[in-house]
Design a binder for these strands. Structure first.
Lengths: 261, 261
DNA sequence: CAGTGGTCTAGACCACACC
DNA sequence: GTGTGGTCTAGACCACTGT
């Protein structure tokens, strides 16, 4: 043990490490602040700047990197939003303990599972045009009974069913085929239709399984199910999709990483 | 000057409305950009700038408001993060359809209920020091069997129980009394101890109620419960609190508003 | 006191979307 | 083209923290 390092920050030459790790290319179309932010992020998650490390002040950093102070600030702001550093006026900037960073964002279960390395399988139980029920019509902003695309899927991983997913979409906005949906997931299809997802509201609840649900999801009668209703909007505020999903609670849970406002 | 009004956006004199609604006080300690952001937010959620309204460009706004363009940008950035407006290069800024905005943030159930206008009640079922079980010890980063404060509460609203909340805290960090906890909630107590909450990880799942839980929560046997485990960290990355909560699913659900990354 | 991040200014040039 | 937001600069002063 060479370093006593008791309660104080580890002796790391932050600015040196950063200058080594970050290469700014002014010819690149990527903004300078973003190059810097990404470089800093790599440096932090790569462990070159351990938790607790004090990062030198903006003015010094700006000088050494050859950019202006607002540019450094913009990059730092990004790191704060990612929860990688904490800044306090009069004190300085410090690398914080990194935590799991699963954002519970605008991704699908498919994406979640795939990034977990589990190869998910999907089977389409039904796909067609139906008249909208009241709740669906409300969510999509249509009249009750209006035509909507209904898509029902069973999602499995490791040969066991995980979720029954029911989605409703306005007719004609997204072209859905069974093949495409089994291959890439609904959200991939939506994005490839040129729709930019912007926001979603979702509600997570629980209830007990009906007999049919229990059989479908390979659970016992009366088992607890997680339910999730999600309505997704594009960047014009128009509803893109409404989903009503049930998950086998014994094999699935939602995780979220929260940051202070 | 007559508005072209190309059929889409409602004919609203955005800059006029904004100038009427936003009063900037340069003597105030509140930053200008924040005064502006709040003013814009009020204007949007108050309906004075209906969804679809085109907001005038930054330069004009800056001129009329008597501030610099970066200040306007900073305020706009805030509105984008709140999901209230969409901006596109070459196009402009547009108010989007406002959605429910319950952030599922670092708040407590107590805060959630209170901001809903329901006056919540809390009764402390037990409060004391216990030896940490394995899962609790892991979450708090302690040895198994180490002393931790255990707090068990029953939360009700409208005379019906909603949740049983079990929290574990390291000994000595926060002074907890039954009176304080029944009055203001745990997170209020933590904040008033000078601890700055920074991040949390939480897992939401479901299971069926045990007999005792069903009785406590006024549910039938085998009813579905929502479960939530949360571990909260301060801005030094140190664990502040670990909680293990169960909610009567028939009377509670989690809502979240998501924005695209 | 000195040092830090927070805010603000008054410009500039660029990339992009629409006409 | 024209107009928009996106980026960037080189300063300035202030508020806060710790000495």
């Amino acid at each position: 043990m060479v370093e006593p390092d008791r309660g104080q920050e580890p002796a790391v030459d932050a600015v040196g490490v950063i200058l080594d790790a970050v290469r700014l290319d002014r010819a690149s179309p990527v903004p300078l602040y973003y190059q810097l932010a990404q470089g800093l992020e790599r440096t932090v998650v790569g462990g070159l700047l351990p938790p607790g490390t004090r990062i030198d002040n903006e003015i010094l950093l700006a000088e050494r990197l050859g950019v202006s102070r607002p540019t450094v600030r913009q990059a730092m702001q990004y790191l704060v939003e990612q929860g990688l550093v904490v800044r306090r006026r009069g004190i300085g900037t410090k690398v914080v303990q990194p935590k799991v960073r699963r954002p519970l964002g605008l991704t699908s279960l498919f994406d979640d599972l795939r990034s977990d390395g589990q190869e998910p399988a999907t089977s389409v139980l039904s796909l067609g045009v139906v008249g909208a029920e009241a709740s669906v019509a409300t969510a999509l902003g249509l009249e009750e009974g209006a035509e909507v695309v209904e898509l029902v899927r069973l999602r499995s991983a490791g040969n066991r069913p995980i979720a029954k997913m029911t989605n409703y979409l306005p007719v004609g906005r997204v072209e859905i085929s069974r093949e495409a949906i089994e291959k890439g997931g609904l959200y991939e299809l939506i994005r490839s239709a040129g729709i930019v997802l912007h926001a979603a509201t979702q509600t997570i609840g629980a209830r007990t399984a009906t007999t049919a649900e229990a059989r479908l999801l390979d659970e016992s009668r009366g088992a607890a199910l997680l339910t999730m209703q999600r309505t997704a909007y594009d960047d014009h505020g128009v509803v893109v999709e409404h989903g009503n999903h049930v998950y086998a609670a014994s094999r699935y849970s939602f995780q979220a990483q929260l940051l202070s406002p």
